[in-house]
Design a protein around this nucleic acid. Structure first.
Length: 373
DNA sequence: ATTGCTGAAGGG
C-alpha cells in the first residue's frame, strides 16, 4: 500500500485469514458431543493412563466430556478472549453469548452504524501513520506482525508522544485477554493518557449503561497495559495461553519486513523476547488518565468527554464475575428488569430464553454449566 | 483429522 518514509511510522496489517468465515461452527445444542460421549463410554480404558498430566489421552478427554459439559471456553474453542468480549458481556451477558453462537447475525441498520464507526477510526489512524499489508499464512505470522508493531510503536510513543491502535495482551484472573488501545499520548503535563474514541449515530450523550460499559473497556486496557510495562506479561505466559510455537519458522514476507525494520530475528520466540525487553526497559509509565470521547458520526461534533476513575478492585471483581461464566462456573445471565429496555434493540430478542423465562434461563437453552469445584 | 482455528473493535 504505502511505504514508510523516514519519520513516518507504518503500522503493519496482516492479511491471510480471509477464509475464517468457513468455520462458522454452530454448536447450538451440540448433539455431536452426546453421540461421541456415549461411544467412548462403552470403550473404557482409563486405568492405565489416568494421570494429572497435560497430555491426557484422547479417550479420557471424550470420557470427561460425556460426564461433564464443556465450559464456554472449551465449547467455543477459545484460547483467549478479546477485551470487547468482556465489555459487551457488561452490556448484556446473554446477548454476548448469542453473538458467539450466531456470528454475523446483525440487522443491516446496526451493521451500518458499526461500519461507519470503523471507517471513522480507520481515517483517524491513517492521519497518523500508513498501513502496510503483509501476506501471512499462520497464526505465528499474525502474532509476529503484532509484535513488530509494538516494537515500532513503543519508541514512537517516547519520541513523538502519540501512537494509535496499540496491541495489548495478558492474563487477567486466569484468562488471557487480547485487545487494542485506540490511542496513547503524553499530555502537556507529561502524563500518559489513553484516549478512546466512540462515535454515535445520534447526536446525543450516551446513557449511563453505555458509559459504564465503555469505562469498563478502557479500565481493562489500563489493567493489561500496566501489567505489560511492569513485566508481568511474560513470553512463557503468552505461549502457554495462545499455544503459539515460538520456534515455528516465520513466513518469508514477515521475515523480510522484520529485517527491513532492522530487527534481526529468526523466530517468533526472538520477537517475544524483544517485545518483553522493550516493554520493561523503555521507561514506559503506567497509564495516568483514561479518557473517552463521544462524537457524532455525521458531523463529528463532540458530544461529551468522560474521564474514567480507575478502580482496580472494582475492575477485578467484575472480571472475576465475567470469567466465572467463561470457565463454566455459572450460567449466563440476561439483563436485570430495570435494564430490560436493552432488549428492544437486541438482535436476539426473538430467540432469547432469558426474556421468555422472565429473568431465568429456560432449561431448553443449553447444556448446564459445569459446576465449580 | 476419531481435529483444528482467532485481526479487535465496530454501537446500543
Amino acid at each position: 500500500m504505502a511505504e514508510a518514509g523516514e519519520e513516518e511510522m507504518a503500522s503493519v496489517e496482516a492479511s491471510g485469514f480471509s477464509d475464517m468465515s468457513d468455520s462458522e461452527f454452530l454448536e447450538f445444542l451440540d448433539l455431536k458431543d452426546s453421540k461421541e460421549s456415549s461411544a467412548s463410554l462403552s470403550n473404557p480404558s482409563p486405568s492405565s493412563e489416568v494421570s494429572e498430566k497435560d497430555d491426557k489421552p484422547i479417550s479420557l478427554q471424550n470420557w470427561k466430556r460425556g460426564l461433564d459439559i464443556l465450559s464456554p471456553m472449551e465449547r467455543f474453542h477459545l484460547k483467549y478472549l478479546y477485551v470487547t468480549d468482556l465489555s459487551t458481556q457488561n452490556w448484556c451477558e446473554l446477548q454476548m453469548v448469542y453473538g458467539k453462537e450466531l456470528p454475523g447475525f446483525l440487522t443491516p441498520e446496526k451493521a451500518d452504524i458499526l461500519d461507519t464507526g470503523s471507517s471513522i477510526h480507520l481515517a483517524r489512524e491513517l492521519e497518523h501513520h500508513d498501513l502496510v499489508t503483509i501476506p501471512i499464512t499462520t497464526k505465528e505470522d499474525a502474532w509476529a506482525i503484532k509484535f513488530l508493531n509494538i516494537l515500532i510503536m513503543i519508541p514512537t510513543l517516547q519520541s513523538e508522544g502519540c501512537i494509535r491502535e496499540f496491541p495489548v495482551f495478558g492474563e487477567v484472573e486466569g484468562v488471557f485477554l487480547v485487545g487494542v488501545i485506540d490511542e496513547l499520548h503524553y499530555t502537556a503535563k507529561e502524563e500518559l493518557e489513553l484516549a478512546e474514541l466512540k462515535t454515535r449515530k445520534r447526536p446525543l450523550l450516551p446513557l449511563d449503561a453505555q458509559k459504564k460499559k465503555d469505562c469498563f473497556q478502557v479500565s481493562l486496557y489500563k489493567y493489561i497495559f500496566d501489567a505489560m510495562v511492569q513485566g508481568k506479561v511474560t513470553p512463557a505466559s503468552l505461549i502457554r495461553h495462545t499455544k503459539l510455537c515460538p520456534d515455528k519458522p516465520l513466513g518469508p514476507s514477515v521475515l523480510r519486513h522484520a529485517q527491513q525494520r532492522g530487527f534481526s530475528v529468526k523466530s517468533l520466540g526472538d520477537l517475544m523476547e524483544l517485545v518483553f525487553l522493550s516493554f520493561t526497559l523503555s521507561d514506559l509509565p503506567v497509564i495516568d488518565i483514561l479518557k473517552i470521547e463521544y462524537i457524532h458520526q455525521e458531523t463529528a461534533t463532540l458530544l461529551g468527554t468522560e474521564i474514567v476513575l480507575f478502580e482496580e478492585k472494582e475492575v477485578k471483581g467484575k472480571v472475576q464475575h465475567y470469567i466465572a461464566y467463561w470457565m463454566g462456573h455459572r450460567e449466563p445471565q440476561g439483563v436485570d428488569v430495570e435494564e430490560a429496555w436493552k432488549c428492544r434493540t437486541c438482535d436476539y430478542t426473538d430467540i432469547c430464553e432469558w426474556k421468555k423465562g422472565g429473568g431465568v434461563l429456560s432449561s431448553t437453552l443449553k447444556p448446564q454449566a459445569k459446576k465449580a469445584k
